[in-house]
Design a protein around this nucleic acid. Structure first.
Lengths: 113, 113
DNA sequence: CAAAGATACATAAGAATCTAATGTATCGTT
DNA sequence: AACGATACATTAGATTCTTATGTATCTTTG
């Protein structure tokens, strides 16, 4: 089962930031594959969604980039900046908190029904 | 603290459906107030977001409506249709599942760091 | 009793962000 | 040689939310 795309909305940026926090340095394609692998195919990040997000993180100064050549093929690595690390902590704790609230909302009557 | 609006994206429809499943019959304004109350002000549903969503649920046949007059003031009640009840179960279990996956993603390195 | 705030509906322009498609190019395998 | 995987990127269109606006009634308070 693949989650409906609307669920991914709003969490993509947080997922990317968290992955970068855990792995120091990643490139776009690698991120799509890692997420797919970690979520057992349930979250599929499309390139059309990922690249604009990465570019936005860069222009917000949350990540820095370095280009590397693997043979003749370009690979663009992303690394968290100091402000990116701070932002990641904020985003992760906000999402964690949000999920607690949502769990509460979804459980309300189910418990007694 | 109020959750950033992007987090609400994609979950609004599910929240509304779940509330209707628990309460049989609710009107728009009541939904905004109930969510605010249940989440201790952390989720604020604006009318500009709610009404289009309710109208969409109606045109998808997931809810039926009945208008009631309180004095001279109109109140529009929404009730889940049979297909709405089925949809609610699907949406709630998908979101629950999604949150488990997200929790896993967010916990990965935190555990060992 | 007038004003302000709460109740209650609704729409609409603009912003943000994702999907799906398309494009370019290299590398490895069969 | 052809195909699939790797790797970047952009764009038209769809979706959905924000912010503002509009209308109208009811309740509370100075």
């Amino acid at each position: 089962m693949i989650y409906s795309s609307e669920l991914i909305k709003g969490t993509l940026k947080t997922i990317v930031l968290k992955l970068l926090a855990d792995n120091k340095k990643m490139y776009g394609y690698e991120i799509t594959q890692r997420v797919k692998e970690l979520t057992l195919e349930k979250i599929q990040i499309t390139e059309g969604a990922l690249y604009p997000t990465l570019h936005a993180l860069e222009s917000d100064g949350l990540v820095t980039t370095e280009t590397e050549f693997i043979g003749k093929r370009v690979r663009k690595y992303y690394t968290l900046s100091p402000s990116g690390k701070t932002k990641t902590k904020e985003k992760v704790s906000e999402l964690t908190d949000f999920m607690e609230t949502m769990k509460f909302l979804l459980d309300i009557k189910t418990k007694t029904a």
